[in-house]
C-alpha cells in the first residue's frame, strides 16, 4: 500500500531539485565569501588585477544567490 501511494516522479523531482538547490546555494554563497576575502587580501597587497577578478567573481556569485532568493519567494507566492 505504501509503495502504491507514492508518486515516484514527484518524489524524484523533489529529491533532485533539493540536492541541486541546496548544494547550489551553499556553493555560490561560499564563493561570495571566498571571493570577498581574497579580493580584500589582494587589494591590501597591491595586486589590483587579482582583486578585480575576485571582485567580479564575488559580485556574480552574489547575483546568482540573490536570484535564488527571489525565485524562492516566487515559489512561496505561487502556492
Amino acid at each position: 500500500m505504501m509503495l502504491a501511494a507514492l508518486h515516484w516522479s514527484t518524489l524524484g523531482q523533489v529529491v533532485g531539485v533539493s540536492i541541486l538547490a541546496g548544494i547550489g546555494a551553499s556553493t555560490v554563497f561560499s564563493l561570495v565569501i571566498l571571493a570577498s576575502a581574497r579580493a580584500t587580501e589582494h587589494r591590501r597587497t597591491g595586486n589590483g588585477v587579482a582583486a578585480l577578478g575576485f571582485g567580479v567573481l564575488g559580485t556574480l556569485a552574489f547575483l546568482v544567490f540573490a536570484a535564488g532568493i527571489v525565485l524562492s519567494v516566487h515559489v512561496l507566492l505561487q502556492k
Partner: peptide, 9 residues
Amino acid sequence: AVIMSASHA
C-alpha cells in the same frame, strides 16, 4: 531548498 522544492511540487 528542500522545503521550497517540495512546496513547488
